[in-house]
């Protein structure tokens, strides 16, 4: 059994950095703990659930997908190399790791996205078994668990009353990481601490079924009233993956960019002629719930939600998709009686 003292996460980060990994880890930043690129001297705080998901390290907010040199009215393509550094993500939450598996499907279901695949291949996800959860966590309602291993290449688990970590490799990438970290790992025994307890808040199957019959529902109108129409929930979500493609440039160079985008923003579906198929926030909330709990299931055979709860923690109006799902589930049960 490979053991690491609880306060030695920075040592693990340092040894991995020395072995050529870009290390991403939860670090404190003002009032938040954020997943960020670790630099020597930074403390690692694996306690709170990070405000941002791991998504941005595999699917950046903004990425150059094509590049052109410009010369008057003519242009010529230039290389736009994919940035896919060898990366170790420490203490990624199981909900985030599972989300990457959902995104694998999106980026490969027909056309294969080289950038996503290259970064995925270059990234080793070291999941942290959640020792605590908060009232927005709902992984157990969407098929996950605080100690789930889906998508993880290695697992960190608190042990001996949070005084140690047990580090376990789950595959080749994990084994390579453990080998690189051998210098800071000790062989020994430790008793794993129990994982957090996350109550099941709703039956996701019931939500999927309900969505199939309730494209028109007063629920959407009510949600649409409170929703402010920002992109906070989608950008915090580890599974939301919608993007925009925009060109920008100077007189001598143009870049084609892939930027995060979201169905919550009014312009997302706006036609240039003015027609908008989703004209209000009610239609956009419906799309959010339907996509995560029905359309994604139909298309890819799983939910597009891993229960991390970030959308609710960060929503300026404190709307929570888990509560929406719970109300749907309860309404369905009430109707069945």
């Amino acid at each position: 059994m490979k053991i690491l003292d609880a306060d030695k996460l920075p040592d693990l980060a340092a040894v991995l950095a020395a072995a050529g990994y870009r290390v991403v880890a939860p670090v404190r930043d003002g009032a938040q703990v954020r997943m960020a690129e670790w630099k020597p001297g930074l403390a690692i705080d694996a306690g709170p659930i990070p405000a941002n998901s791991v998504k941005e390290f595999l699917f950046p907010r903004c990425e150059v997908i094509a590049r052109y040199s410009l010369d008057g009215d003519s242009f010529a393509p230039q290389p736009a190399p994919v940035d896919a550094p060898k990366t170790a993500v420490l203490a990624v939450r199981p909900c985030d790791a599972a989300a990457m598996v959902a995104l694998d499907k999106v980026f490969n279901w027909e056309y294969r996205d080289d950038a996503w695949n290259a970064r995925r291949e270059a990234t080793t996800l070291v999941a942290l078994v959640c020792a605590a959860a908060d009232d927005e966590c709902f992984c157990t309602s969407v098929g996950g668990a605080p100690d789930a291993r889906l998508g993880a290449d290695a697992v960190l688990r608190c042990a001996d009353g949070a005084s140690k970590f047990i580090l376990e490799a789950l595959g080749e990438k994990g084994q390579a990481l453990l080998a690189a970290a051998a210098g800071v790992l000790a062989d020994g025994d430790a008793r794993p601490d129990p994982p957090a307890s996350v109550p099941v808040r709703f039956d996701s199957k019931a939500v999927t079924d309900w969505c199939g019959e309730n494209f028109e529902s007063p629920l959407w109108r009510d949600l649409g009233l409170a929703c402010l129409g920002c992109g906070s929930c989608a950008y915090a979500c580890p599974v939301c993956h919608c993007f925009d493609i925009q060109d920008e440039g100077t007189r001598s160079e143009a870049v084609r960019l892939r930027n995060w985008d979201t169905c919550g923003l009014a312009l997302f579906t706006q036609h240039s002629g003015g027609h908008n198929p989703r004209p209000d926030q009610a239609a956009r909330w419906r799309q959010r719930v339907m996509h995560k709990f029905r359309y994604f299931v139909e298309r890819f055979g799983g939910l597009a939600c891993t229960g991390c709860g970030r959308c609710a923690r960060l929503c300026p109006a404190r709307l929570a998709i888990s509560q929406v799902c719970r109300e749907i589930d309860e309404a369905r049960k009430a109707a069945a009686k």
Partner: peptide, 24 residues
Amino acid sequence: LENRMKCGVGQCGRCNVGSTYVCR
């Protein structure tokens, strides 16, 4: 259907109507 599209390859999510990717 002439929905707004960006990627054309079934990933950007803009053209979706239900679980249908209009672009694919």
